[in-house]
Amino acid sequence: MNTRPAITLVLGDITDQHVDALVNAANSSLLGGGGVDGAVHRRGGKAILDDCRRLRASRYGKGLPTGRAVATTAGELHAEHVIHTVGPVHSATEDRSDLLASCYRESLRVAGELGARSVAFPAISTGIYGWPMDDGARIAVRTVLESAPASVTDVRFVLFDRAAYQAFETALAEQG
Rank of each mutant, 00 (worst) to 15 (best):
T170W: 01
R53F: 08
Q166A: 05
E106F: 02
L55V: 12
I48V: 14
D37M: 10
D20R: 07
V155E: 03
D95P: 05
I128Y: 03
R105T: 12
G63D: 11
G176M: 07
A167I: 10
A148L: 03
M1P: 13
L145C: 01
A21V: 08
P122L: 04
E169G: 03
S91Q: 11
A116S: 14
Y165A: 05
S125L: 10
V40E: 03
V119D: 04
P65G: 09
H78M: 13
D20G: 06
R138H: 12
G127S: 08
Y129G: 00
E113I: 06
A21F: 01
R142H: 11
E113F: 03
S118M: 06
M1K: 09
S102M: 09
Q17D: 14
D161C: 14
A167E: 02
G75F: 12
R68L: 13
S107D: 07
I124N: 03
E146Q: 09
Y165V: 00
A39E: 09
T3F: 14
V23N: 00
D161M: 11
P132R: 09
T170V: 15
Q166F: 05
L99K: 13
R4A: 15
A164R: 01
D154L: 05
A116V: 06
D154M: 06
I128T: 09
G127D: 08
I14A: 00
V82C: 01
F168Y: 13
S58A: 14
L64I: 13
R156W: 00
A137G: 06
G32V: 08
V82E: 04
Y60S: 12
T15S: 04
G130C: 05
F121W: 07
A71W: 02
E94Y: 09
E146C: 01
V86E: 02
K62G: 15
F121V: 05
V119Y: 02
T3S: 15
M1W: 07
V141P: 00
V82L: 05
G136I: 12
